[in-house]
Each structure stands twice: as structure tokens, then as C-alpha cells.
Nucleic acid binder design. Structure first.
Lengths: 194, 194, 194, 194
DNA sequence: TCATAAGCGAGACGGTACGTCGTGTCTTACG
DNA sequence: CGTAAGACACGACGTACCGTCTCGCTTATGA
């Protein structure tokens, strides 16, 4: 059955102390952005020393990536509202909230990713893949309910909904609204999927 | 009237020397990324001194933004292929190429933008607005040819095509292909617009 | 012979404009010291341009030296009070006043001199030599009046009076007073010279 | 009391690393002069970084002053030859050597001092005062031996010997010789003090 | 009377040093 | 032994000044 959910949401592998460091990193990141975030500040605020940070993450970039993944990992929840439309709206709303909340972090990670293949791969594995699973499940549920035609699925643009919303959140000055999500779902996605 | 094209593509306001500095900045940016780009290197390669750079742009971030805008400004061309489908495919292809070419630059600018309202506004005015004009013209031409129904236009998601493609280029690991563009146009946009 | 005075005090070779530049230089020099004096400031204050300054003096050091020499040249006056004691007191007082007035300038010139043989030579020719002539004349006058014994003259320490006073003005924190001069003259020099 | 010598020569307050930095500074200072000395060069030669230098001394001027004081502090030695004449000759010789050796440094420090009251005070406390103590002791010893008459001491010109010699070393082009010292002592000072 | 040149203001420029700050490594001392 | 504290080498940032240079504009003379 779809969504048998054999993937337990991967309990965090960080200790309490590490989680605290990541939380502080995330907070400072949102406040000041990547460039103006200093490892020194993270350590100071955690009453730790820089060495304590660097012992766990080999560089500022790794620290920030870990903080970002940890910060977003918690919120990946398959919607399961009972209808395809409801699921898509929920998914879109969730993406908007996340992208808004972690906007500067994502931009920072994104930028660093450009020239750090390791980060890129890590981001793909730990972030993108999780989200793909959610979408697959929503669609599978819809098919199971007879709300969507599997023949209409298109792997090329399976992430059109979250993709465009993320674009709107991170790159455009027009933050997506509930109306944006509604229109996307009702006028673009549902006509295609049915 | 549609396609009247009274907007000359906004002649650059930079002198030859400044354009040279921006070009070098852009090149080094693509090679090394924002963090590993040094103003000193830009100056050296231009046989200039740091002061010459800083006289024009007050910081590294401003320099990079200017280089980015200059680098992309040159390539904004309304397609005008004669059909809506052709225009949309051309537009999509152009977006893909630009986003691919200037990917790391865009990511860098994006990141810096997060905490620099001046940059954000500048980017909106000089970059986003230019692209909106192109889209408006494409749609207006289509209406003039009877290929699109103005009632179907939706301001909320008018940039769905470039938006999703940019998302794919900059954030996803799946760079968009010609097939991506084709599917978007044929299976998403055209059904909606007609 | 005493007072033969064939040396006219060497009319300044500077034009009015040049003298103005030197005066401004001297003033700024006394206010801010050598390091914090900028050629730019001299030019600005004279409503001139840097090129105008550099056309006349090849470097900041030369400019400052010229300003210093011009500033002190005006005040070299053989005392001629009628008695050796009066002449020495007058000489001492004059030295004190000059050294006090142009203290920071002298220190600056001195410093630059260290590593600029040209300046060193120029300073010797144009400054030290002038002062030697004055002392020689005072002593010659005293001999002519029978107040001093030529046999007691000592070339090694002929400048003991101005030398010690200059030391006090420039290097020590104890600026010389009239009493300092009096003691030097009455208790050191006169006993020796008679 | 004469020779009570309770003043231990004030152990340096610098660590080994700091002393090394100061020694390098002093060496480069003597080679190149103040203006042409760069903090970068000091750091490089010490295999240190600029930050390491600036952590200790807030500016180049402070660094140079410290180097100068450290460089001269080591050599302040009361002569104690057994006779007033011997002590004075030794003192004069020592002053000549120091002033010659550290000439450009002294000139540089002097210049900087002009507009830096903090430096001026520091120089007075740490440098001038040390030298005063030596002179006082020499004279006290002479009195104890019956070689000098305390009534003849004159606070106004107590430093006539070192003062004039320093003047000759730093400001005049006529560096003092042993003969200069001898004449000063035999023909000027001893007649006065006895 | 007008043109051709010489001098000047303004200020951009290449270069170089300054003093600051952040990263990532390392040592020291404490618990 | 792990940690807090923080010194350290490295290197980029952004600023300031020096001495050179190029622009126009003025002025002062010579045809």
C-alpha cells in the first residue's frame, strides 16, 4: 500500500549539545545571514569554544548546512487530508511557510552549495529526497482514491508546485500567498492530473 | 499596441572602464563563486587598484550585483517567433541558458540580497521588472494573434514558466532540459492560456 | 671684520603663490605633524591642485623641507646688542622661540632627513650654515670688543648654547626658559670664553 | 645615598614572543626608517601575522615606541668608574653610542611623539626618567668622594652633557667624537662642578 | 582680433600600507 | 579526557595617502 511509511523520519543523530549548537546557528543565520554569521558568535552564545564547534563540523559551511537540515527536517510531514486537493493545498502551504521561515538560510546554503560538491550531494540526499517521498505519497494516495490518473504523472515536472512556490519565496519579491497556492492547485495542477 | 517595442533595452550607464571591471568580476565570479572572489583579484586582473573599484561600488556585494545585472541585462530579448508556442519555448530556453550560465552569480547575489534591502530593491527594479516586460509582450502578441484568451491570464502566476525553470536551475539538482521546457509549455501553459 | 655683512639674507626665491603654498604647509605641519599632513590638504586649502604642488616640489618631504626653511629663514637675525652677554642671551632666546614655534616641523624634517641624503645635505647647507655664520659673528664682535679670548674658542662645541637649547626644546619635556638661557650664558659660556 | 642602587633595572614586562617582535621591529627600523617600516614586514619576518602584532600594540607608532624603549632600556648602566671624570667620560661615550645606534629610531619616535600625548608621557616616564637617575647617581657618588660641590649643581642644566651630545648625534651633521666628550667634560663640566 | 599654447583646478588612477575582522588550527589550564 | 578560553597564521576587507596622469578651462601672448 502506498505510504506504508517504512521510513521512520530518521531520528536526529545529534546529541543535545549538538542540537543546541545547531539551533543557535539557525537562529543567528536567520537574523544575520550567512556572511554575517560568525562561528565565534555561535560558540559564544552557546558558552562553548570554537574548537567545540569545529570538532563536530569541519567548516562553517558544514555547520550551516547541518543547522538548516536539522531545522527543516522536523517539519516534513505528509499532509494526508483525505483529498488530493486538500493534500496539495496543505503541501503548498507547508512549503510556503518553510521557505519563508528559513529563507535566508536556504539562500545561504544554496550559495555555498555552488562550489562545494559535498554540500550539494548532502543537500540532495537529506533534503530533496525527503520531499520527493512526500509528493510521491500524495499522488499515490490520490490514485488509490481514484482522484488522479497515473498516466498524467510527469516525472519532469513532478515538483512544479513546491518548485514554483520556492522560487516565489526565495527569488522573487512576491512572496506566495494562500491565493497563490489555490490558483496553482485549482487552475494548474488539478486539471492536469485528472 | 502589442509589440510596439518602444522600450529601447536601456543602454548601460557604465563607462568602458567600468564595464571592463564588471566583466572581469563576472568571470571570476563564475569561476570561483562569491566567497572566493576577491576585490583585489578583480583589480589586479584589470590592472587597476582596489581604490578604483571601491570608488564606483562601495562594497564587494555592490560590485557583484552590478556585475550580475550587467551580465544578464545584455541578454534580455523578446523572442517574437510568430507563435505563442514558439515564443514560450524560446523564452524558456533563454531562461535556462541564463540561469545555467550565471547560476553561481545568481545564488551569490540572492544570498547577499537577503540582508541588504538596497540590493534587494535594485535587483527588483533592474532585473525582475525587465523580465516581466518580456512576458507581458509575449502574451500581448499572442492575444493579438488570437492564440490566447486574456481572460485566462493570471497575474498571480504569470511567471510560472521562468519561475519553475529558475528553480530547477538554481535550487534543484535536476537542471532543466529542452524536454522540461516543452512539457511545461505543451502540457501546462498552453492548455491554460487557450 | 665684524658686521661686514656682505651676505644679503638671500631673498627668497619663491613666487607669491609658492610662498603661500609653503605657508599653508607650515601651518598644517605645526597643527598636525608630518605624518598627518597630506599634500591633498595643502592643495585644497590653497585652492590649488596636487599637481600644482608637485610641479614645484617633487615629494612631500621636499615640500615640507622647503616650508621649514622658508619659515625659519625669515627669523635669522644677528643680535648685535653691544655686549657679548647681551648677544648670547638674545641668541639663546631666539633659538628657544624658533625651536618652540617650529618644534613639530623640525622633528618631522629631522625624521625624514634620516633616510634622505638629499634632504640632509640641503638642510645642512641652508639651515645649519646660516646659524653658524651668526655665531661666528657674535664671537668675532666680542673679540673686537675685547670681551672674549679667541684662544678659548673651541670649534668642537661652538654650538653648545643653541645645541643644548634645541635639545631641550625638541627632545626633552622641559622646555627651556629665560632662566635656562641665563644660567647657560652666565655660568657656562662666559666663564669659558673669557 | 650614593650607590644605594635599590632600583633593579626594571625587568622587561614583555614575553619572549613580544621581545622577539620588538627586536625585529628595532632592526627593521634601523635599516629602513620609520616610514619605510611596515607592520607586515615585522610580522612576516617573525613568522607572525599582523593581528598578532596589533593585539599587543594598537598602532605602528606604539609598536615602534615600545621597540625603541626596549632597545635602549637594556643599555642604561651607571658607569661607576671610581672618579667623576671617568664617570662623565663613560656616560658621554655611552650616550654617543646609543644615540648613534638608535638615531633613526629616536628621530622617528620623536616625530610621532609630537602629536601623541600618550607616547610623549610614556617616553618621559620610561626613558628620560631612567637617564636622570643615572646622572643623579654619578653626581652623588662624586660628592661622596669629595670631587664635586653640591652647591654647584644646577637642576636647570643637569643634562647638559647628554643633551648636547644627543643634539650632536641626532640633529647636527657633526656626530660627536671622543674628543667632543673630552672637551665637554674637561673644559665645561669639571670646571663648573668643582 | 583671434588662435595657439602654457598653466591651472579638479580629480581619477595605480600602488601600497594601514588597521580590522573572520576562519580554522592549536595550546593551555581546568574539572 | 573533554572542554572553555583564547592565541595564532592567514588572508580579505575597506580606507587613506602618495605621486602620476589626463582632462577642460582659463589666461596671455603672437600673427
Amino acid at each position: 500500500m502506498a505510504g506504508s511509511g517504512s521510513d521512520v523520519p530518521a531520528r536526529s543523530r545529534w546529541s543535545a549539545r549538538e542540537a543546541e549548537l545547531l539551533a543557535i546557528t539557525l537562529q543567528l543565520l536567520q537574523q544575520h545571514g550567512y556572511d554575517r554569521l560568525t562561528v565565534e558568535a555561535v560558540a559564544t552564545q552557546a558558552k562553548a569554544s570554537k574548537a567545540t564547534v569545529y570538532r563536530r563540523w569541519p567548516s562553517k559551511a558544514d555547520l550551516v548546512l547541518a543547522a538548516f537540515i536539522e531545522g527543516t527536517r522536523l517539519t516534513v510531514v505528509p499532509p494526508n487530508t483525505g483529498s488530493l486537493r486538500g493534500d496539495l493545498l496543505a503541501l503548498g502551504t507547508q512549503v510556503c511557510r518553510q521557505a519563508c521561515e528559513h529563507g535566508s538560510t536556504m539562500r545561504a546554503v544554496l550559495n555555498e552549495m555552488s562550489h562545494n560538491p559535498g554540500l550539494k550531494e548532502a543537500l540532495q540526499n537529506e533534503f530533496v529526497h525527503q520531499r520527493r517521498l512526500v509528493i510521491d505519497q500524495v499522488l499515490a494516495d490520490a490514485v488509490a482514491r481514484g482522484e488522479a490518473d497515473p498516466a498524467k504523472f510527469n516525472d519532469e515536472i513532478y515538483d512544479l508546485l513546491p518548485g514554483y512556490l520556492v522560487f516565489r519565496s526565495l527569488l522573487s519579491a512576491r512572496e506566495p500567498t494562500d491565493e497563490t497556492v489555490r490558483i496553482l492547485v485549482d487552475e494548474v495542477l488539478l486539471p492536469i492530473l485528472r
